[in-house]
Design a binder for these strands. Structure first.
Lengths: 239, 239
DNA sequence: GTGGGCTTGTGATCACTGTCACGATGGAAG
DNA sequence: CTTCCATCGTGACAGTGATCACAAGCCCAC
């Protein structure tokens, strides 16, 4: 581990990576990880870097070692939908790589991050020669499908925008919420604009809904922290 | 091949199945297919049969040998969204089986169909012992993720319902459309209600939009055939 | 401090589409 | 032929949320 550009601690070798055991994909046998070490390229990206763009031919797969990435898809009119916030440990671009079809989404780093890249040919060969890697990839893909399915539910079944927002908050609470006496606490790292893009609405509507939630004491904002009344939010979603 | 209940020609052995070579998942080496033959259970289902229901613990995976299945997800209020129409050759329930999480969707056969079932334990062992099966499963999952992503785009980025309907028709045209002098021709096998459930709207709106499309000469309906003016539809979607 | 960018807050307006209600159509069964 | 049930067609109406427009914060660099 050493200090590099953008203040990111980089793990130069997967074999000795201190996070390996806690990362679903990377947690593989020594031989497999060694091979991965040989074919991967490590890079450190600043915030805002774009790993790949929707529609591009797949060059390879990206493994997020640290940091978070925003996966988006957008229409010709410039409307953007944030499909998912990918966390450390996730593999991006695997489905496009495996199928040989263009990337379905764009990926942009939200924080300075370390990312490992594996060229598509190398990755496919790796899957063929290392069953464990293939199995872990299948798990990654399953997780991606699972989360896409949640997104579809939220977009397609919500009656109202407030329901979508409530669903989003509940999701956040599940993922990073910290239970306190004042409700589930979490840091809001996105702007209203970005929240709007996550639930497919406009910035103004998000602002209005947030005011409304505050007025109804469903949420409370203190600086960059937000306290959620989980039961109240759950009452708003139909599921 | 022999004739069985519900008038479905069944393929009792994968090894000798006449469709094997054209099915992405089943098109595997002899040894692998032989193993699959040993662990699979073949069944023939009538139209309307439910293979599994959203939220159930995964019992195993289903391989559609013939026929089509409707994958749906629904809210507590009874609103239903058709996520996808799965065709012969597709593997259902793989992601839930691999992750050990509940099925994300429900699957209901739209036609009398042959379906092979593999118990979850057997399937997982199969993936572990047969790298080729694992690779093909990864491909199946990639395809599922890809189509889920399309669905997300359509649901989240469309400005209007007419745009969603146009997108759906273009999808159909891509998949099963037959180019004729009067436009892309396809059979409409779904009711307005089902179309509505595919694009997350109501039956009435679909009816109204179809009238509108007919009036504007974007589509023409003759019996169960529909002729589409693809360029006009493309002009309606923002993509 | 002070200016300038990015954010957030809020009002007014209006097209779209969900909802309810009812009637028409059409195919299958008897 | 008639009945029945699923599907389709259509009107009226109200609520939601998109759009536009502008004001007010807020943070950072200079």
């Amino acid at each position: 581990m050493n200090n590099t550009p953008y203040n990111v601690d980089t793990q130069n070798h997967c074999e000795s990576c201190s996070f390996r055991s806690e990362r679903q994909f990377c947690n593989m046998g020594t031989a497999t990880v060694k091979r991965m070490d040989e074919i991967k390229f490590t890079a450190v990206y600043p915030k805002g870097s774009v790993l790949f763009v929707e529609g591009e031919q797949p060059r390879g797969v990206f493994i997020i070692c640290s940091g978070r990435a925003k996966l988006t898809t957008s229409s010709a009119e410039g409307k953007t939908l944030i499909v998912k916030i990918a966390e450390a440990g996730e593999v991006l671009g695997a489905s496009a790589g495996i199928l040989g079809t263009p990337y379905e989404v764009s990926a942009e780093m939200l924080e300075p991050s370390q990312v490992n890249f594996i060229r598509r040919e190398d990755f496919m060969a790796f899957l063929n020669s290392h069953p464990e890697a293939c199995l872990h990839t299948a798990q990654q893909l399953s997780a991606k499908y699972h989360s896409a399915q949640r997104e579809i539910r939220s977009l397609g079944l919500s009656q109202s925008t407030s329901e979508k927002l409530a669903r989003l908050f509940l999701d956040w609470s599940d993922r990073t919420g910290e239970t306190t006496a004042k409700g589930s606490r979490l840091k809001v790292l996105l702007t209203h604009e970005e929240i709007a893009q996550m639930i497919g609405t406009t910035r103004e509507t998000v602002t209005r809904l947030l005011s409304d939630f505050k007025r109804r004491k469903i949420i409370e904002v203190k600086g960059s922290s937000m306290f959620l009344q989980v039961p109240a939010l759950e009452a708003m979603v139909s599921i």
